[in-house]
Amino acid sequence: MHTIADIKAHFAAGAETVTLTKAEWDAVCDVVRAYCATGKERSAAVREAERVKRVARPVWRACAQVSERMRRALSRAPLAVRADLVADWEMRLRHAMTVDWQDLPPGHPGRWSRAR
């Protein structure tokens, strides 16, 4: 196996390429394989990214509303917050994460296929 120092010295001497043995090539491939994704994994990641984009704005709005309401409630009575207020805050945050097909952007293909 070549060490990094050997390879650097090889290039410093003016070489343009490095020749690897089969074992060295297989070792490189083993490392690369750990970072490769299948088509199914990639599409799942894309779907999750789209879901996060759809959810992000309503969740941030809900967080801002809930934090403001919590601040007001705690400023009035710091040791006695009613249970119904806490339940309302929790419901607002949970419902902000639920996204319907109508929440898709106007040009998204999934919006029109379900709207008909």
Rank of each mutant, 00 (worst) to 15 (best):
A15C: 10
A15S: 09
A15H: 13
A15G: 09
A15D: 04
A15K: 08
A15E: 14
E16T: 15
E16P: 01
E16W: 06
E16N: 11
E16H: 10
E16L: 08
E16F: 03
T17Y: 10
T17K: 05
T17N: 09
T17S: 01
T17P: 01
V18C: 03
V18L: 13
V18K: 00
V18D: 00
V18N: 07
V18S: 01
T19G: 05
T19M: 06
T19N: 13
T19I: 13
L20Y: 04
L20N: 01
L20P: 03
L20D: 09
T21Q: 05
T21V: 03
T21G: 04
T21Y: 01
K22R: 11
K22T: 12
K22C: 00
K22Y: 03
A23G: 11
A23M: 06
A23R: 05
A23T: 04
A23I: 05
A23K: 11
A23C: 01
E24S: 05
E24R: 01
E24Q: 06
E24F: 00
W25T: 10
W25Q: 05
W25F: 10
W25G: 06
D26N: 07
D26H: 06
D26M: 08
D26F: 12
D26T: 07
D26C: 13
A27T: 06
A27C: 06
A27M: 13
A27K: 10
A27E: 12
A27V: 04
V28E: 06
V28A: 04
V28T: 10
V28P: 00
V28H: 03
V28D: 00
C29K: 14
C29W: 09
D30W: 01
D30H: 02
D30I: 06
D30Q: 07
V31F: 03
V31N: 02
V31T: 09
V32S: 02
V32H: 03
V32F: 01
V32L: 12
V32T: 07
V32Y: 02
R33I: 08
R33H: 12
R33F: 08
R33Q: 12
A34Q: 10
A34V: 11
A34S: 12
Y35F: 10
Y35S: 08
Y35T: 02
C36P: 00
A37V: 07
T38S: 15
T38Y: 12
T38Q: 12
T38V: 15
T38R: 14
T38I: 11
T38D: 15
G39N: 15
G39L: 13
G39A: 15
G39F: 15
G39P: 05
G39T: 14
G39M: 15
G39Q: 15
G39H: 14
K40N: 02
K40M: 07
K40D: 15
K40F: 11
K40Y: 14
K40G: 09
K40W: 04
E41M: 09
E41V: 06
E41A: 11
E41F: 14
E41C: 11
E41N: 01
R42Q: 13
R42E: 02
R42W: 08
R42C: 11
S43A: 08
S43Y: 09
A44N: 04
A44L: 08
A44W: 08
A44D: 10
A45I: 10
A45L: 15
A45W: 10
A45K: 14
A45G: 07
V46F: 12
V46T: 14
V46A: 07
V46E: 14
